[in-house]
Write a protein that binds this DNA or RNA. Sequence first.
RNA 1: GGAGGGGUGGCCGAGCGGUCAAUGGCAGCAGACUGUAAAUCUGCCGGUGUACACCUACGUUGGUUCGAAUCCAACCCCCUCCA
Length: 416
Amino acid sequence: MSTVTSDFLRVVSERGFLHQCTDIEALDKRLLEGPASAYIGFDCTADSLHVGSLLPIMLLRWWQKTGNKPVVLMGGATTRIGDPTGRDDSRKMLSDDDIARNMAGIQKVFGKYLAFGDGATDAVMVNNADWLNGLNYIDFLRDYGVHFTINRMLTFDSVKLRLEREQPMTFLEFNYMILQGYDFAELWARHKIVLQMGGSDQWGNIVNGVELGRRVHQAQLFGLTSPLLTTSSGAKMGKSANGAIWLNEEKLSNWEFWQYWRNTEDADVGRFLRLFTELPLDEIARLEALQGAEINDAKKVLAGEVTRLARGEAAAAEAAETARKTFEEGALAENLPTVEVPMAELEAGIPAFALFVRAGLAASNGEARRLIQQGGGKVNDSPVKDAQAPLSLADLKDGVVKLTAGKKRHVLVKAV
RNA sequence: GGAGGGGUGGCCGAGCGGUCAAUGGCAGCAGACUGUAAAUCUGCCGGUGUACACCUACGUUGGUUCGAAUCCAACCCCCUCCA
């Protein structure tokens, strides 16, 4: 990596955000000349982003912090097509209602990471439906279609892989890359945006936009990608026992979010601290150097910082305190996930296995029985011996029963 | 349009008339060891009833058979080659 002098490129290269850049020297030079605008596109395929999108979001945050203007592009129109990148099969088509709902959910998270407004470096949000939905097919083909050759498009990974695996790719999906390229050219024309960032899988799509901008507008545009993140043991980021690690609070509790980061593998701690927190690098170096059980302190810092950014100061403190009580004191912490059960049912007695199912700790009665048989089910911290044994009011402590599955999953059952 | 191959549990992939809820691998869950880590070892891994049982499931619909994921027919979908 050549030495870069602009604040933004220096920070992101030191912290490990950089994977590829179309022309890093020229971009560096451009950034030294003054504030610039950059965007990242987000598809509206779910009603919340998950931690897989956190890397691009942090890129935009640093972009703003180093004096530039971030633009968040919502793929209102491109989501109607479906990005074929990295997919063996077509996505299922989303209805316009779904897309609108998803967009509303996704938008919520950006306010936590970016400062929006009308100022020079304030973030703005745009929707590509504004210019894509109204496109005239023939005009578009004449103005932009001429700049794309099929020969070239067939060499892109997103297309090539699908063909090699003998999976069908529809013409609809085939157009995705053209529209994403067009987005960049259009954003240059509308907002003078010079840089598009994204995950490394977006490289091909981004390069298309850079080239289109040069051909249509004679503009020098830049592309920059971040590495695709996997954990040290090779798993994709963002999956847990219960599914994806969502950024939105309605989709995943603060406690579970905090726990995800707390359970980071040793080998990933330093890398994640650099990417997902804003701690100074020398502080990270110190935390990263911790050995043995002490590295748990670094994990707590990681969990605290990431949760603070995504969910707020109070949420982070509360999760940390809940974890401390639960794991270090073995005490009953009131902020664990809670499930309510009518008092009358509890009075009548609910078999232990059934309660585990009610609490969401087992997917079926059979699974709950197995859990208990294997010694993984605990009530108020003592192992359940008999799955049939009913729990009743006598098991309540301060109005709640604490259920535990395995070592880490705790739920409070509250009688109401 | 013609010829051939194929559609099996979350994924991959065996099975090709009963002993098949279906080998194996991955993923997942639990236990042991640890540090709420990794690696390793052990157990579990469709549903309901705590066993024997029953229900649902091998693309769809029918059929043959005492009995079908396995055989037959039609249909749907995918792939390859030829035109």
